[in-house]
Simulated scan of single mutants.
Amino acid sequence: MQDFGAAFGQAFALILSGDADLMEIIALSLRVTILAVAMACAIGLPLGALLAVGRFPGRGAATVFVNALMGLPPVVVGLGVYLLLSSAGPLGVLQLLYTPTAMVIAQTILVTPIVAALTRQVVEDLHAEYDELLRSMGARRLGVIATLLWDARYSLLTTALAGLGRALAEVGAVIIVGGNINHVTRVMTTTIALETSKGNLSLALGLGIILVGLSILVNGLVMGLRGSAARLAYA
């Protein structure tokens, strides 16, 4: 118990002192995660809206496929991206393997189905409510999608935050494509796994505390935005 107590004390000391290695790992984690979520939103928001509003052959199958991808195993994504970016793969010439860019790609693939599926549900519900009004105004398909996305912006922000929470906790894919290289691709989740296996509990606990804090912050923002959206809806 004394060892655990000392490890917790050292973990808080690392956080409060602004340890350089700790800050570097946190900064890289946030940079990779935020960029991946931004790219996932750029793809997933219009894709989800198209599945909600569009009427085309195979729409049902596409919706089922996107929903199924929400449960895509991270290690499978990591393996797929590894094969694409390895020297023998089709994108090996880009030499992106074991770089933060490869980690962004893997996380984008993981988060995009989540954003798309949640966006489809939000926009589909909104479309059912405003379909006749939009038709009477003569809105075209792209105009309908843009209008519904804007009207659902608060709900879609919670969707983006859900993707952010998913990306922050990811370890399987990023360790495969990033390699967990010190000062290059070492992020919070991979460092926690490595330092725990080495018995360096202070750094692992420090990063764990930060990660839990970020998760609480993300969930708090989600609840706050949902509350704001509900108040605006009844205003």
Rank of each mutant, 00 (worst) to 15 (best):
Q2K: 08
G5E: 15
A7E: 13
F8G: 03
L14D: 08
D19N: 12
D19S: 06
L28D: 00
S29Y: 02
V32A: 02
T33Y: 11
I34L: 14
M39P: 00
L45Q: 14
P46W: 14
L50E: 14
V53N: 12
G54W: 12
G54L: 09
R55E: 15
P57H: 01
A62K: 03
A62R: 02
T63L: 09
L69D: 15
M70I: 07
V75N: 04
V76Y: 11
G78C: 00
L91K: 05
L96N: 10
Y98H: 07
Y98F: 15
T99V: 00
I105C: 04
L110C: 04
T112C: 01
T119K: 05
V122L: 14
Y130N: 07
D131W: 05
E132Y: 06
G138A: 04
G143Y: 05
V144Q: 11
W150T: 05
L156A: 07
T159Q: 14
A162I: 07
G163T: 09
L164W: 12
R166P: 01
G178T: 01
V184A: 05
V187K: 00
T191D: 04
T196H: 06
N200D: 13
L201V: 03
L201S: 07
S202I: 01
I209R: 13
I209A: 10
L214V: 07
S215T: 08
N219D: 14
G220T: 09
M223L: 13
L225D: 10
A230L: 08
L232Q: 15
A233H: 12
